[in-house]
Design a protein around this nucleic acid. Structure first.
Length: 423
RNA sequence: GUGACUGUAGCUCAGUUGGUUAGAGCGCAUGACUGUGACUCAUGAGGUCGCGGGUUCGACCCCCGUCAGUCACCCCA
């Protein structure tokens, strides 16, 4: 026997019953997005590398060290999608979707990042997200935040906090950047090596350093709020006002910056402390400059990405393993003659939409019933020599342990009678 | 990329200072019960002890390497 091959590092297979939880979650998310007026977008799993370099930002961790990039046989530089926003914008531009102005899109699918796996972080993971294009006003932020809130409500999730911040726009962000530099430069040599590098390349990122050596400087660092221009300040206040009106609780957290370059003004994240170190379930914000930087019109936009692995982990942490309800019919034939009669009945049941299990091996009734338990079937349909002789088939309710006898003829009505009985 | 811990049956794990034939529980199979399932009882199958090298008379155990998992850092979903 040759050796087994494992799934690649940081990836995982999903089999029953977990695959059922995935399907349920995905369909609920899709339904919710549609309720908010969003249509589904699907994009290729890989894109030209340049899309992410331009869209996400050269100085981000994603582009610097986390992309799965390769050169194809035609010499093209390609990358496995590390995030959805840039591809969605590209796709929308390609379809000229912005000709009419606003557009609302949602997605569900995989992303790829070359990182060391740990709890809540994988090399292939999945995100649900929305992108709301065309609205410069604070209503757009509130709409997408309300959508996430609705997801949490629909699962009865409590204890997830919404962190909110504003990082300014193209007018005040450079001012803040300068203020930050002015403040930190004198202490440059006392900062962590990592932060020293960031100070020159991407000073905002110094803010979310957790290094001990940086902390004392960060305590008294000038905050964004102190330097926001008036329009940004008004915008942020309006977002908060709407959230209050919708009774969505939030905390203003001046330290959240987000790792992607394209964000402007509002940034937010939903955080749980039930998930270990990787507690961010959902991150998002406004990115008014991205569409234009990818060759489109100047069009404001807001969106978020929600991590499905982390969300499912949260569900399990909060509610435990979901109980497996008994459902479906275990068809049991005892003997070849019975099997010949039963197979068409099973086909009929399936045509009528009934979930039906059957094992074709020759075994005793006991063995079949154990298989029924394993399948969590709600009913057993038993056909053996006794039933053939009496012209009746037994339908047993496995939960209540009661039998029903149903006539075996006329043949074409048997399946319908069973379905009616099962309900 | 850095660090710590862990790899023994399908699953969860024992395995003494290195010693001869590697165990348990659950699960699985068969039977007790020509044909009535969540309970019993009995019997059985299932292991290159992650992989490769080294030390040793002898390695699941010690050493080195490697791969994988877990958790944390970095960062993020």
């Amino acid at each position: 026997m040759s050796s087994k091959i494992a799934a690649p590092r940081g990836t995982q297979d999903t089999l029953p019953p977990q695959s059922g939880s995935w399907r349920e979650l995905e369909s609920r998310l899709a339904g919710l997005a549609q309720r908010f007026g969003y249509g589904e977008v699907r994009t290729p799993t890989f894109e030209y590398t340049e899309l992410f370099e331009r869209g996400v930002g050269e100085a981000t961790d994603i582009v610097e060290k986390e992309m799965y990039s390769f050169v194809d046989k035609g010499g093209r530089r390609l990358t496995l999608r590390p995030e959805w926003t840039a591809p969605v914008v590209r796709a929308a531009l390609g379809a000229n979707l912005f000709a009419q102005g606003a557009a609302r899109l949602y997605y569900i699918g995989s992303i790829y990042r070359y990182e060391r796996p740990q709890r809540g972080r994988y090399r292939q993971s999945h995100q649900f997200g929305v992108e709301c294009f065309g609205f410069a006003g604070p209503e757009a932020e509130v709409e997408v935040i309300a959508l996430v809130d609705e997801v949490l409500r629909s699962y009865g999730i409590h204890g997830v906090r919404l962190n909110l911040n504003s990082i300014g726009d193209k007018h005040c962000r450079p001012r803040y950047r300068q203020a930050l530099l002015d403040y930190l430069r004198p202490y440059r040599s006392e900062l962590s090596e990592e932060s020293q590098q960031r100070l020159e390349r991407n000073p905002l990122r110094v803010l979310d350093s957790k290094d001990e050596r940086d902390q004392r400087f960060l305590q008294t660092v000038p905050t964004f709020e102190s330097i926001l221009c008036q329009p940004c300040r008004d915008h942020f206040e309006a977002v908060k006002g709407y959230l209050d009106a919708l009774k969505i609780a939030y905390t203003v957290n001046p330290r959240i910056v987000r790792g992607l370059d394209y964000y402007t003004r509002t940034v937010f994240e939903f955080v749980s402390d039930a998930l270990g170190a990787q507690g961010t379930i959902c991150g998002g914000g406004r990115y008014d400059g991205l569409v234009e930087s990818l060759g489109g019109p100047s069009l404001p936009a807001v969106g978020f990405g929600l991590g499905l692995e982390r969300f499912l982990m949260l569900l399990e942490a909060l509610h435990g393993e979901p109980p497996r309800p008994r459902n479906g019919i275990q068809a049991i034939a005892l003997g070849q003659e019975a099997r010949v009669r039963l197979v068409p009945i099973v086909a009929g049941l399936r045509r009528l939409g009934a979930c039906t299990f059957i094992d074709y091996e020759e075994r005793k009734l006991l063995g079949h019933l154990k298989i029924a338990d394993r399948n969590a079937a709600g009913h057993a349909l038993i056909l053996g020599s006794d039933e053939l002789a009496s012209g009746e088939i037994i339908l047993r309710n496995l939960e209540r342990r009661v039998d029903r006898r149903l006539p075996l003829s006329p043949e074409q009505d048997v399946a319908a009678a069973i379905v009616k009985e099962v309900g």
